[in-house]
Each structure stands twice: as C-alpha cells, then as structure tokens.
Amino acid sequence: MLHINCPFCGLRAQKEFAYGGDATVKRPEINKEVSKEEWDNFVYMRKSPRGKHIELWHHISGCRQWFKVQRDTATHEIFKTAKMSEEIV
C-alpha cells in the first residue's frame, strides 16, 4: 500500500485516496472550437509510461482535494506531490 503525501493533510495511507489518471492532460477550453483530432486525443489517448509519471490523486476520504503525484510507475517510488496550482518539474 502506497504512502501518499497529501499537500493539505500530510502522509496518509493509499486507502484514503482515489487514482485519477494522467495529470498532464489538459482539457480543451470550453466554448472554443476544437478539432476532432484534438478532442479525441483529450478523451481517449493516454500514454502509459514506464518510469516517472505525473498523475492525479483525489483525497476522497480526507480533504477531498485533487492533487498531483509524481510517481515511478514501475517501482511505485513517489518523488513529489503538489497542489493543482503548483508545477512539478
């Protein structure tokens, strides 16, 4: 079970969180024309990298905040967590 550092609550067991997918995906802006390709990329296309990956987690049994986690998908090592307003470089 992972130990995840919620930027708002601190280190908590994975049980308290829900996984939310790739955090680098950006939704096309609302009320703007988007090409079919751009839209399909947003809805369906995801990379499945081996290694470092920035992903979303949701502290559902805690503060209910979504935040970013930089994790190694192969080793589960967590390098960093950050609020949505913060960048992970």
């Binding site: 829900a18 939310g20 609302i30 559902i60 905040q65 979504w66 949505m84 307003s85």
Partner: peptide, 17 residues
C-alpha cells in the same frame, strides 16, 4: 452520488479553478 461529487470537484479544482 459519490461519483458525481468527485466529478464536480474535478472540474472545479482542476479544469475551471
């Protein structure tokens, strides 16, 4: 109920803060 709340929070916190 639970999924809709997470869905709303997702858009408010991530897409349209």
């Amino acid at each position: 109920a639970a999924n809709v709340l997470s869905h709303l929070e997702y858009y408010l916190q991530i897409v349209w803060p």
